[in-house]
Nucleic acid binder design. Structure first.
Length: 640
RNA sequence: GCGCCUGUAGCUCAAUGGAUAGAGCGUUGGCCUCCGGAGCCAAAGGCUAUGGGUUCGAAUCCCGUCAGGCGCGCCA
């Protein structure tokens, strides 16, 4: 459908260029609301009417007359509803083209552009929680969509291994729990241990100003590389990072590069950025007496000045982030060193930045992106917008335009959910619609815990349906189902919808859920397998839709049309930053498939022509749904 | 105070400015001698918070009101 729409646009533009002014008009198509309105619809006449001040219906009639019989793929053009232009396709041609396309693998148009997707970027001081899961699931799906559309994609995960958050737990380990590095190394599940410790020390800091001062002291020692604080910090950051990488790996989420803040600092990235910032007058000494000695950037949009270099000479988070993002666009004139970090089971490596050369340089180059997606929640819009502004001010308008804050709303907990977890509500919170997730307050659902709950429930469901399945197979299967449930749940909401987390909904395997999609494909595959075993041929005999009984033909055709939209849907999702539309599309296709095969039996159909047409449709469903599911990171099991 | 976002069925959410606002959950009632019931079919449920405006056309855009959320730090 994608190629057909592109072709139609060109044909229509050519046919109308002498009679109508199409400049600045983007011809767009949609599937009409009802089948009786045809197969493809455009509101072109309305758009042109607005431009010229003429009547849409009259204009549509004129356009229809000019297009009638001139478009190769179109049997008829009709006007309806006051000015809609509705196209009726040559159905057999379109259908057969769709069938043929199954034989060839979908090849995305070649694009030279390199896309960098930064996602996850969790502070390495405790286990990941459900808020982080939304980030990673969105980021990974985004990366998969970009790859599908032919972009070269590099996935980066930014590690703030120098911040005060890590210092908090380092203080907790060394000075509160009074452990030495050896004892710390022996902690079995460090990330989970720190989950508790982080919440505990933050309760202490809140009540005791002296302790809070100690924490800042530890932070300073880490920056000055004083032992044992520095070594402990390195150990903690690396171990917890590994824990995050493993958690995400369970969900099929992979990274190419782990970029560490400590390396941004060690390699003086900010110095290079600062020279530019100061040289162009973007970063200036503050005129505010309260910010004496600070270097600031004036943020136009908010009409405030943001501190970049503190009066003590240290660099703020934004400053480091500006340098890092300049590097992503290859606008810094510097590069990291690199070292191997981890190898995924499929053999792909994760590389980590390094402040010093480490063995042979990596085979591939990092950074140098033409387009940057930063998957970061909406609460950082302010800073992300500032970075975009700075890119433009430094004379890189194209980078500014290709810098995308892929912003999404947070995951929160319902008050009921907080109570369910055995945590207490503060006064007034009971009446709130939702409560912010907070690692600091220990108020969050741990990612690993949620995955474990999903696997447990999944195992129970699998066991009930497949009592003869060996334990190992059942466990493997339940993992695949758990991942589907989680990943689908995390992308099915619009980006600016706050997910008020609820166990019942997240653990739902019915209806609008990942397992429902898997189940549909498992059923569909089962039909195809049985057909193959019985030597039934999906491609036999059918030269068109004519053999289908009238009642079935309309439905069949509608399904072919919807199935043809895959590429259109992925492009739409990417352009509109709405990955949820993909989830909705996938769900809709599965519903349509379930509906169809309940109405029209495939294997039991005695007429071989009819049967092979139905099998052909099942095959189309298989290819399209499996393609979207792979974009969503959902595997299709053999059985379930 | 300033900025951004949200308000749609009992609940959770969909819906390129387009044709009769759709799903899931929940409720009620059907469907397994039938390709696997994590399924299918049907019913009930809506003044799209509210008042104006723009438009051939508004849940969607603009202005106001009400209600809620999030930002605005020499934290990251």
């Amino acid at each position: 459908m994608k190629s057909l729409q592109d072709k139609l646009k060109k044909e229509i533009a050519a046919l109308l260029q002498d009679s109508h002014d199409l400049s600045g008009v983007d011809i767009s198509f949609s599937l009409p609301a009802e089948r009786k309105f045809g197969d493809l619809s455009t509101t072109l006449a309305f758009t042109l009417a607005k431009k010229t001040g003429s009547k849409p219906f009259v204009l549509a009639g004129d356009i229809a007359a000019r297009l009638q019989g001139k478009l190769a793929a179109v049997a008829e053009v009709r006007v309806a509803g006051g000015g809609f232009l509705n196209f009726f396709l040559h159905r057999d041609d379109f259908f057969l083209a769709q069938r043929r396309s199954l034989a060839e693998a979908w090849t995305a148009p070649a694009r030279r552009e390199k896309v960098i997707v930064e996602h996850t970027s969790i502070n390495p001081n405790k286990s990941a929680h459900i808020g982080h899961l939304r980030n990673s699931c969105l980021g990974d799906t985004l990366a998969r969509c970009c790859r599908f559309l032919g972009y070269e994609v590099e996935v980066q995960n930014y590690i703030d291994d120098t911040g005060i958050q890590v210092a908090d737990v380092v203080w907790g380990l060394l000075h509160y729990r009074r452990m030495d590095l050896e004892a710390i190394r022996r902690i079995p599940d460090l990330a989970a241990y720190l989950w508790e410790l982080y919440a505990e020390v933050n309760r202490l800091f809140a009540d005791d100003e002296a302790l809070a001062a100690q924490r800042r002291e530890v932070h300073k020692k880490i920056e000055e590389k004083t032992e044992p604080e520095y070594g402990t910090c390195r150990h903690v950051a690396e171990q917890v990072l590994l824990d995050h990488v493993r958690t995400m790996e369970r969900l099929g989420i992979h990274y190419d590069l782990l970029a560490r803040e400590s390396d941004v600092i060690a390699l003086d990235f900010f110095k290079a950025a600062a020279a530019e910032l100061a040289g162009r007058g973007v970063m200036v000494p503050s005129s505010d007496p309260e910010k004496q000695g600070c270097l600031v950037i004036h943020y136009d949009r908010e009409k405030i000045e943001k501190i970049i270099v503190r009066s003590n000479g240290t660099i703020t988070y934004v400053g480091k982030d500006i340098a890092y993002n300049l590097w992503k666009f290859d606008l810094l004139g510097r590069d990291f060193h690199y070292r191997p970090f981890h190898i995924y089971p499929d053999g792909r490596p994760i590389v980590m930045t390094s402040s010093a050369p480490f063995g042979a340089p990596p085979a591939r180059s990092f950074g140098k992106g033409q387009r940057i997606y930063n998957v970061i929640d909406v609460r950082q819009s302010y800073l992300q917008n500032l970075i975009a502004q700075v890119l433009v001010q430094l004379g890189h308008p194209e980078a500014g335009a290709n810098f995308v804050h892929f912003s999404y709303e947070m995951v929160a907990l319902t008050p009921a959910c907080v109570r369910e977890m055995g945590l207490t509500l503060e006064p007034g919170e009971e009446s709130k619609p939702y409560i912010e997730v907070s690692g600091r307050k220990g108020r969050a659902v741990k990612a690993d815990d949620l995955i474990a709950m999903l696997e447990k429930k999944s195992l129970r469901e699998v066991g009930a349906r497949n009592p003869e399945l060996p334990e190992a197979d059942a466990r493997k299967l339940s993992r695949v189902i758990a991942v589907a449930a989680l990943r689908y749940f995390m992308v099915k909401f619009n980006l600016n919808t706050v997910i008020a987390f609820d166990f019942k909904e997240a653990l739902n395997f019915e209806g609008d859920s990942g397992p429902y999609l898997q189940y549909a494909v498992v059923r569909l595959n089962s039909i195809l397998k049985k057909a193959a075993a019985a030597d039934m041929d999906a491609a036999a005999g059918a030269a068109g839709l004519a053999p289908l009984p009238e009642g079935e033909r309309e439905l069949y055709w509608e399904l072919v049309l919807h199935l043809s939209l895959l590429e259109v849907q992925v492009e739409f999702a990417l352009q509109n930053h709405e990955l949820s539309s993909l989830a909705t599309y996938a769900y809709g296709l599965c519903q349509k498939f379930n509906h169809y095969y309940h109405l029209f039996p495939v294997l039991a159909e005695p007429d071989p022509i009819l049967r092979s047409l139905r099998l052909g449709l099942v095959l189309l469903f298989k290819h399209k749904i499996e393609a979207i599911l792979s974009l969503l990171g959902i595997e299709v099991p053999e059985r379930m």
